[in-house]
C-alpha cells in the first residue's frame, strides 16, 4: 500500500476524487444560482428541485420511452429550462416588482410541490440509473482507480462551466447580461429587450441544474430529496463565493468539493459540516464572500 508520511495515498486520492465530483455538481448548481441572482435578483430556492427534476426526467425518459443517456443529456436540460421559462413568464414576472422575498417564497413553494409530487409518485427510497455502456469500466492510475463515468462528470461539468463563463464574460451577449444586471432600465433605453433576456437567462440558469441532474442520475440515487439535500450546501457555497461573480461561483463550488473530500479523509466526522464552518469564517473575515464585491 502506497503511503507518504503515514498517509494512505489510495484512500486520499479516492476522497479527493469524490470531492472533485461533488464539487462538479456544486459548481454547476451555484453557477446557475449566481446567473439567476445576477439578473433577476432572486434566490431560486427551486434550483435543487430542478436538479432533482432533471434526474427524474432522465430516469423516466429511459424507463418509459427508451431514450438513452446521451439523448437525455441534451433533451432534459432543454425540457427543464423550458419549464423554467414558463415559471418565469407566468409566476415570477407578475410579482417581479414586489419585494424579492415574494419570488423567493414562490420558488421555495415550487420546490416543495415538486418534491412532494415525486415522493407521491415514486416514493422516497430512490431509483437506480445505469451508467451508460460507453462509460462503464475505469482507468488505473498510479494511486487510484478512476471510474470512467466519474471522469466524465468532471470533464462535462468543467466544459459546461467554462463555456458559460466565457459566454458571460467575453461575448456581446454576455455584455448585455452584465449590463442588464447593472442597469436594466438603461439597457431598455438602448433598445434591448431586457424582459426577454431575463426570461431566457432564468431558463438557462435552471437548465444548468437539469443538466447536473442528468449527470448525477447514474452516480447518486434518483430520489425526491436529492435536490433539497444538495441545495443547502450549494447555498453555503454561494455565500462563501459571493453573489457577485460568475467565475467565483464555479471556483468556489470545485474548491468546496475538494475541501469536503479532504475532510472526509483526515477527519470524517466533520465532513458534512466543514463547508458551513468555512462559511462562518468567510462571513466573519470577508462578508461579501471570497469573490464578491464589497457593497
Amino acid at each position: 500500500m502506497a503511503t507518504l508520511f503515514g498517509i494512505n495515498l489510495f484512500a486520499l486520492s479516492g476522497q479527493l476524487l469524490v470531492g472533485l465530483i461533488n464539487g462538479s455538481f456544486y459548481a454547476l448548481l451555484s453557477l446557475g444560482l449566481a446567473i439567476i441572482f445576477g439578473l433577476l435578483k432572486i434566490i431560486n430556492f427551486a434550483q435543487g428541485a430542478m436538479y432533482m427534476l432533471g434526474a427524474f426526467l432522465a430516469w423516466m425518459a429511459l424507463q418509459y420511452f427508451g431514450i438513452n443517456y446521451w439523448v437525455a443529456l441534451v433533451l432534459v436540460p432543454l425540457a427543464v429550462g423550458g419549464f423554467a421559462i414558463l415559471i418565469e413568464r407566468f409566476l415570477v414576472r407578475p410579482i417581479a416588482k414586489e419585494d424579492h422575498l415574494y419570488s423567493l417564497l414562490l420558488t421555495f413553494g415550487l420546490a416543495l410541490i415538486l418534491q412532494g409530487l415525486f415522493t407521491q409518485l415514486y416514493g422516497s427510497s430512490g431509483l437506480g440509473y445505469q451508467i451508460p455502456a460507453e462509460l462503464k469500466g475505469g482507468t488505473k492510475l498510479p494511486f487510484m482507480y478512476l471510474p470512467n463515468y466519474r471522469a466524465w462528470i468532471i470533464i462535462a461539468s468543467l466544459v459546461v462551466c467554462a463555456t458559460t463563463w466565457w459566454v458571460i464574460e467575453k461575448t456581446k451577449l454576455g455584455a448585455y447580461l452584465r449590463a442588464g444586471t447593472e442597469n436594466p432600465q438603461l439597457m431598455q433605453g438602448f433598445g434591448i429587450n431586457v424582459p426577454l433576456i431575463t426570461t431566457l437567462t432564468f431558463g438557462f440558469g435552471v437548465a444548468l441544474a437539469g443538466f447536473a441532474g442528468v449527470l448525477a442520475a447514474p452516480v447518486y440515487s434518483v430520489s425526491p430529496e436529492m435536490g433539497s439535500n444538495i441545495l443547502i450546501v450549494v447555498f453555503a457555497i454561494v455565500v462563501i463565493g459571493g453573489m457577485g461573480s460568475i467565475g467565483g461561483a464555479i471556483l468556489t463550488g470545485l474548491m468546496m468539493g475538494i475541501v469536503e473530500g479532504l475532510t472526509k479523509f483526515f477527519y470524517p466526522e466533520a465532513s458534512s459540516t466543514v463547508i458551513f464552518l468555512v462559511m462562518v469564517i468567510v462571513l466573519l473575515l470577508k462578508p461579501a464572500g471570497l469573490f464578491g464585491k464589497e457593497a
Binding site: Q185, M187, Q188, G189, F190, G191, I192, N193, V194
Partner: peptide
C-alpha cells in the same frame, strides 16, 4: 410601445 422599441 414597450421601452426597448423606442431606441429603434
Amino acid at each position: 410601445l414597450p421601452a426597448h422599441k423606442i431606441a429603434h
